[in-house]
């Protein structure tokens, strides 16, 4: 094998490793969303109107449709945040399901304009009647 046989693949390997190290080195920055606890903790350091994604479970206690969206609580078991979402509500939206909302703080409410469903890795067969049972918690 001459030098080029080694150099090209070695370069490719290096590129992959460096790429993933840089990416992995960003560490906690590579999170798709903040949990409600993290959102509350980090709020002091954020500029007003700072946009971020907030992810958690839709809580069952308080949930109401509005003219142009929905109001509900997103929680992670420790902290719950009221979300006022303007825009389309996905078909899978229901208490107990995970969501990721994108927007910013407005007072103590999180005002969102993008609502994504973030379901877990559970696959439950619909029983004979096709009834829906509210899932309890994520593992």
């Amino acid at each position: 094998m001459n030098r080029r046989h080694v150099l090209i693949p070695a370069g490719a390997l290096l590129a992959i490793v460096v790429g993933f190290l840089v990416w992995g080195g960003l560490g906690d920055n590579v999170v798709y969303y903040l949990t409600p606890s993290e959102a509350v903790d980090q709020r002091a350091g954020q500029e007003p109107g700072y946009r971020f994604r907030l992810g958690g479970l839709i809580e069952a206690d308080w949930l109401e449709g509005t003219d142009d969206g929905v109001r509900f609580m997103v929680g992670d078991g420790a902290v719950s945040i009221a979300v006022e979402h303007t825009g389309a509500v996905p078909q899978l939206f229901r208490p107990g399901v995970g969501v990721v909302v994108e927007g910013a703080w407005e007072g103590d409410t999180f005002r969102s304009d993008t609502l994504l469903i973030n379901h877990d890795e559970q696959y439950r067969a619909v029983d004979g009647e096709g009834t829906y049972q509210v899932p309890t918690t994520r593992p």
Binding site: H119, A125, V126, Q133
Partner: peptide
């Protein structure tokens, strides 16, 4: 012929 999924419904067939 598999059952639908509770949260995702018929879309889960893409599984």
């Amino acid at each position: 012929t598999a059952p639908a999924e509770e949260t995702q419904g018929e879309a889960a067939r893409l599984l």
